[in-house]
């Protein structure tokens, strides 16, 4: 499993960990029932504090991606993949909406924006 943390990012480290684990769970890289590393060993290997990894796991528990079994650890729970994908789509929609808002405020045409989207999408591949 790979987790990549940026210390310079504006996104808090616990959120970076949470998002990456979530992606792995949705994509199936982490399968339901799999034991996750303990908060302490994860903190050590990512060189971050224990509270940070604890926060990430707690958020994942709250959102239903991970379940905790006391004195055993954290396990990947069975997630409804469709629901999870929908959640991600909603997120994309939110971000696109704010991009479109800026475009409209500055009178950019729809074509400019969709072209830009296409180019960016291809670039990333």
């Amino acid at each position: 499993m790979e987790i990549i943390i940026s210390n310079d990012s504006d996104i808090p480290i616990y959120e970076q960990i949470k998002d990456q684990l979530k992606t792995k769970i949705i994509s199936g890289e982490l399968v339901s029932g799999e034991l996750l590393p303990s908060i302490r060993s994860l903190a050590k290997d990512l060189r971050c504090s224990v509270i940070t990894t604890k926060n990430a796991y707690e958020e994942l528990v709250k959102e239903g991606y991970v379940k905790t079994i006391p004195s055993k650890g954290f396990y990947v729970s069975t997630v409804n993949k469709e629901l999870a994908k929908e959640e991600q789509l909603n997120k994309i929609q939110d971000l696109l909406e704010s991009a479109i808002n800026i475009a409209k405020m500055n009178n950019f045409s729809q074509k400019v924006i969709s072209d830009m989207l296409n180019i960016l999408y291809e670039e990333d591949k």
């Binding site: 210390n7 302490r40 060993s41 903190a43 050590k44 060189r47 971050c48 224990v50």
Partner: peptide
């Protein structure tokens, strides 16, 4: 710092670490 993080794998333990070099703490301090 690896040694300190290894030490803290045991959750019965704790560390008080003073420093005026804050970058060390930025990573590992709770």
């Amino acid at each position: 710092i690896d040694i300190f993080q290894n030490f803290i794998q045991n959750e019965e333990c704790a560390i008080l670490l003073s420093s005026h070099i804050t970058t060390d703490l930025e990573h590992i301090a709770d």
